[in-house]
Design a protein around this nucleic acid. Structure first.
Lengths: 128, 128
DNA sequence: GTACGTGCAAATGATTTGCGTTAAG
DNA sequence: CTTAACGCAAATCATTTGCACGTAC
């Protein structure tokens, strides 16, 4: 999670801090609201720039759900389970699923695939 | 593909026509450009309204790729393979993959999942 | 004839960018 | 000291909406 090449500005640190241990997949606005308490002068542009920057550095992960960007500290490859009612997103790790999926497309002509992820849709117990 | 409850306006017909047999997953703008030849006075608002309408009716399918909506005539459940270079998207049908994925999450606590789809990433032969 | 769809222009919402200033290393 | 990041405001891009008019059925 540390990297020598990057400048650890207060803004960046607070954003990383907010995301750390936050598995709710917050949107840009939610991250902005979350760090505003600590850094009252921060702007949304800075949040956008840093979230993009940190995603590109592989320090966080961006998930796009129906046109909205969300961010999470879990950088391991994994799948997502989404509730159709409350829109909550759960991480789901399954190496065997990833491997099975890759095996299935391996002998496909015209494409060399190197990774995959699966999205699940359903209803969480809270909403059911 | 036909439905008695809907009004078949020229705009709607041309949009369906453009999408029919078009497996390139066009964006809203591409659909707009595609039908403008036939209906010079059509506006993007109409294209947006109809693509949404037809998706809700289940007559076409919307796919969201990195924040941009794309549309396709293939309404059967299926997976997608995307080229990281040229961004081309290929449909990939695999009932066994869907079934395997569902089986894996079936005994997950806190969520009742009813469908899934897998996205694959790689490089197509054209780009490789 | 009536309800629904359309074209147009304006509104909204998300994200990006130019620029002068500030701070990390 | 130098370069990258910040804050601010304005720009851009995708998508939606209100409204008067038109058209499918």
């Amino acid at each position: 999670m540390t990297n020598a090449d990057i400048k650890y500005t207060n803004q960046r640190i607070e954003i990383l801090n907010f995301l750390k241990d936050n598995y709710n997949h917050p949107t840009v606005d939610e991250v902005y609201d979350g760090v505003k308490n600590k850094l009252s002068r921060i702007t949304k542009a800075t949040v956008y720039r840093n979230l993009k920057f940190l995603s590109e550095k592989g320090m966080i992960q961006e998930v796009n759900v129906k046109g909205v960007s969300r961010f999470e500290p879990n950088i391991k490859p994994h799948h997502h389970i989404m509730c159709n009612r409350c829109k909550k997103i759960l991480d789901f790790e399954s190496k065997e699923l990833s491997e099975y999926a890759l095996k299935i497309v391996k002998n496909l002509k015209g494409f060399s695939v190197n990774n995959s992820n699966t999205n699940f849709y359903g209803v969480c117990n809270n909403c059911a």
